[in-house]
């Protein structure tokens, strides 16, 4: 019986060994394709936005949600912007690798020695408007002379200031917050507004479009391209592949968002809820539609900063004395294909 027992033990042991080997081999086979895929592990990167989550940034949220950044080898973190957050500072301090900035902002900081590089241009034109109530009788820029005009502080006031300078008028500048109530209650005569945002907020506060006089800055020659993707020069030099992947993924995200607006809105609203900011789907839908108008104005130029726009903004700002000089287009922008 003892012999038998011993044999039996040995048999069991043998069986266990075999099982172990089989398991090992199984793992080896299974992990083969996995290890080859993750041969280059995902690079960590972060993007800081200009404002809190909304459809203005739908492309990035969609690209992240749909795994487009991951497909381009990037493990991206999106840092939300908002009042009091400076994307330039975040770039400089290394809190973020990429930032959404206006061209005017980037210009200003570049002149101040911050080596910002434009890697993609999303909004191809100015979407800023100056809006007054028809009852105020203000119809033209000249009518605004001496009137109370609400302006956002900082770089966002550059285009309207430039416009007022061009017309040689002086307005009573009132700093404007991120609500439209000051204008609605009559605290100011003219308000600054983004076509994709405040203009629609006004409409959804019960003001009809035909009760308003609207002036697009773009139509007044203020051809300031707005949202662009920026990074520091050193980031480009250190890892051009990362920058390339980031740009491609971001643009792909935008294309997906425009092609699937409902899904894109779901993703944006989800992010807004997470950030605990008021989420109004109707408003976000409007914003996404306007983003499409502003971004895809010229299909061939999708995602690129046009040299003529660049030069125009540079000249305007130099003439205004905001900057003494500006770098040439090739230095300021970086395109992976241009480098190759």
């Amino acid at each position: 019986m003892i012999v038998y027992k011993g044999i039996r033990k040995a048999a069991v042991k043998y069986q266990q060994e075999v099982a172990c080997w089989i398991l090992l081999m199984f793992f080896a086979i299974c992990s083969q394709p996995l290890s080859s895929l993750s041969a280059t592990p995902l690079k960590k990167a972060s993007l800081i936005l200009l404002w809190s989550p909304q459809s203005q940034f739908a492309g990035y949220y969609v690209a992240l949600e749909k795994g487009i950044y991951q497909r381009h080898g990037i493990d991206l973190t999106i840092l939300k912007g908002g009042p009091g957050v400076s994307p330039v500072l975040a770039l400089q301090q290394g809190d973020a690798d990429f930032a959404v900035l206006w061209l005017t902002t980037a210009f200003g900081h570049r002149v101040n020695g911050k080596r910002l590089v434009n890697v993609a241009q999303i909004i191809q034109r100015s979407s800023m408007m100056l809006i007054s109530k028809k009852t105020s009788g203000i119809r033209t820029i000249n009518d605004m002379n001496g009137k109370k005009v609400g302006l956002w502080q900082g770089d966002l006031s550059i285009p309207p200031h430039t416009l007022f300078d061009k017309y040689g008028i002086s307005v009573r500048e009132i700093p404007q917050s991120n609500t439209v109530n000051l204008f609605l209650r009559g605290g100011i005569d003219v308000t600054s507004a983004m076509w994709y945002n405040e203009y629609h907020v006004l409409l959804n506060s019960g003001v009809d479009a035909d009760e308003l006089n609207t002036i697009f800055l773009q139509e007044q020659g203020m051809t300031f391209p707005e949202d662009g993707l920026y990074t520091l020069e050193k980031t480009v030099q250190k890892d051009p592949a990362l920058v390339d992947g980031f740009v491609r993924a971001s643009l792909e995200g935008w294309q997906y968002a425009f092609a699937h607006p409902d899904e894109a809105l779901d993703i944006v609203i989800k992010n807004m809820r997470q950030a605990q900011v008021p989420a109004n789907r109707t408003h976000q839908k409007w914003m996404l539609e306007r983003m499409k108008d502003l971004t895809v104005s010229d299909k061939n130029e999708f995602g690129t900063l046009k040299p003529q726009d660049y030069e125009a903004v540079g000249k305007i700002m130099r003439n205004q004395g905001r900057i003494k000089s500006y770098p040439d287009y090739a230095t300021f922008t970086w395109r992976s294909d241009a480098r190759k």
């Binding site: 409409l203 959804n204 506060s205 019960g206 008021p278 989420a279 109004n280 109707t282 408003h283």
Partner: peptide
């Protein structure tokens, strides 16, 4: 605090 009568 999300919707206005007009957005609806």
């Amino acid at each position: 605090m999300n919707e206005t009568f007009f957005s609806i």
